[in-house]
Computed example of a mutant assay.
Amino acid sequence: MSTPKPPTPTPALALVVIARDEAASIAACLQSAAAVVETMIVLDTGSRDATVAIAERCGAQVHHFAWCEDIAAARNAALALSNARWNLILNADERLVSGQAQLRAPCAQPAEWIGVLPVVTSSVFAALTRPICASASATFGRCCASGW
């Protein structure tokens, strides 16, 4: 008789990224959040460069999605892959530049928090403040309508 495995705990916080041909920036994105998330999910929409290999080397779970010209469909598919109570959503060319430690406390609370963290967008090479939606999947619609 085999010993049953204990249930896998639900991650408190997951990083969710949609990417396509982002080899130049995906590592910085994933590395900026790796210390504060329990899991990293990358939904690749058809990369022809090294995006997938780089994301896997950084420890991300990589899934594939056929691009259908609908970012909402891709975002929903990416969020469906997460079983975390909270999801931090970044674009592949963004990275957290501060505030990572501040994510931990709200993740211990009910999923009703929306926050703003400074991120860097590689395409503009400038720091900017952008609303970051960290929410439970169940409240994603309300959260994103308010702050994303």
Rank of each mutant, 00 (worst) to 15 (best):
A126E: 14
H63R: 14
Q31N: 13
P106W: 05
F125E: 12
A74L: 06
E69V: 02
E69M: 11
A78T: 01
T51C: 12
C107W: 03
N83I: 10
N83R: 15
A24Q: 12
N83Y: 04
A127M: 14
A134V: 15
R75M: 11
V120M: 15
E38Y: 01
P9T: 03
A66Q: 14
E112F: 07
A35R: 04
A50S: 13
Q61M: 11
I26G: 04
L13E: 03
D21W: 07
E38M: 02
Q102F: 07
L103P: 09
P4T: 09
L81E: 13
V42H: 07
Q61D: 08
R85Y: 14
R57K: 11
A92S: 12
G59K: 00
S123Q: 11
C29L: 10
Q102Y: 05
A33S: 13
T8Y: 03
P7N: 11
I26R: 03
V36K: 00
D44M: 10
A34W: 01
A27C: 07
P106F: 05
I41N: 09
D21F: 05
A35K: 05
L79V: 00
K5Y: 11
N76F: 03
L30Y: 02
V36G: 00
A127D: 10
A127Y: 14
R57F: 00
P9I: 02
Q31H: 10
I41P: 10
V42C: 11
A35Y: 00
L13Q: 07
